[in-house]
């Protein structure tokens, strides 16, 4: 393989009038990657995806696929295909005609179109529905048609815009499995946009977290989860607790009480504490249980600390429900907090 990345975004940005939707950003995606662009709504992630697809002209920067600059090309000339959030299926065509639409435009022979349509429908397990009209399909089936219609083009990059947002929970998990299976089966490169961190972690091997038009962190799911680069990432990814504190000469003192060694600049900091790292500790911080939610495999407990901050605890022990009753006073501690510099205030 060459060292040229499949997709390279350099200094890409977009402004709508005076409003910056996407700040200049760099992103590199290798062939075979399953990349998630993760962020809250309005963070610019859809704008970024639509720039890659060619529907939005960037204000600055460039997009290159396999080293070739495609910034100036329209969506019909790019080796990318998109699965739209609202699917955008053609209501006047059958399932098979929808899927074969792109190939028919290329004037491929009837045989090839129908062979590859069958293939694509088999991939998404819709062989039996090829002659149906679109309005007679369920939401999940329409989603698969949209997927097949894009995949049949054998795109260098498949773009998915909140692909599972319109589906109910069970169907969403099912489609996540399907997407993983299809990604492995065809070995393509997928980039998808989502606001759901669990979806991003379930599918992607590369996660780019966006906030207010900026990419805050790019990394593997584990990197993003375990060592968030910014406060926003820490807060957005996972159900971590952020505890305020102050660093003086290599030592951090939290408002809640604990202090520990931590090298870095003097000033206000936040300690990031993972819920699964919190437990009872006889000489720990006093805390009151304010809430306990049973999740089947684990119990999620909210604790109020002396500093009036909330600390989340997750326990999968069998007697957890009996131990963490609402109103109970306990002493808790944790290991492995991560410290991030916080701005004043």
């Amino acid at each position: 393989m060459t060292s040229t990345p499949l997709l390279k975004l350099s200094g890409l940005s977009k402004s709508f009038g005076a409003a910056r939707a996407v700040e200049p950003l760099d992103l590199t995606v290798q062939a075979g990657d399953f990349c998630a662009i993760l962020g809250p709504s309005g963070c610019g992630k859809s704008t970024l995806l639509r720039m890659i697809a060619g529907f939005i002209e960037p204000s600055s920067g460039s997009i290159a696929i396999e080293g070739r600059d495609i910034t100036a090309l329209g969506p019909e000339k790019r080796p990318t295909n998109m699965v739209f959030q609202s699917y955008g299926l053609f209501p006047h065509l059958t399932v098979a005609e929808n899927v074969g639409f792109g190939l028919a435009l290329q004037k491929k022979s009837k045989d090839e179109v129908s062979r590859r349509t069958d293939e694509a429908l088999r991939l998404v397990r819709l062989e039996a529905f090829s002659q149906r009209m679109i309005d007679r399909l369920s939401g999940g089936q329409q989603q698969r048609v949209a997927l097949a219609r894009a995949l049949i083009m054998r795109p260098k990059i498949l773009l998915l815009d909140e692909p599972l947002a319109a589906l109910d929970l069970k169907l969403r998990h099912q489609m996540q499995e399907e997407l993983r299976r299809i990604h492995q089966e065809i070995g393509g490169t997928f980039i998808f946009v989502t606001h759901d961190q669990s979806e991003a972690f379930a599918l992607a091997n590369l996660v780019a977290v966006m906030n207010q038009g900026r990419v805050e962190q790019i990394g593997s799911p584990a990197e993003v989860y375990l060592s968030p680069a910014t406060l926003f990432v820490a807060d957005f990814v996972g159900e971590t607790s952020l505890l305020a504190g102050e660093r003086r000469q290599g030592r951090v003192t939290l408002k809640a009480g604990p202090h520990f060694a931590s090298a870095g600049r003097d000033g206000p900091v936040r300690a990031i504490v993972r819920p699964e790292r919190v437990g009872l500790k006889s000489d720990g911080v006093p805390a009151v249980v304010t809430d306990a939610v049973f999740f089947g495999a684990s119990l999620k407990v909210s604790l109020r600390l002396p500093s009036d901050e909330t600390l989340i605890l997750r326990s999968s022990e069998a007697d957890a429900a009996a131990r963490y009753r609402i109103g109970e006073r306990l002493a808790v501690g944790w290991e492995d907090q991560q410290v991030i510099d916080a701005g004043p205030g």
Binding site: A53, P75, E76, T80, S86, R149, A150
Partner: peptide, 17 residues
């Protein structure tokens, strides 16, 4: 819907197509 138009362009359709 505008999405059907975008989808067609994405699949390689020219303006007249």
């Amino acid at each position: 819907s505008e999405t059907t138009i975008e989808a067609a362009r994405d699949l390689g359709a020219s303006a007249s197509q």
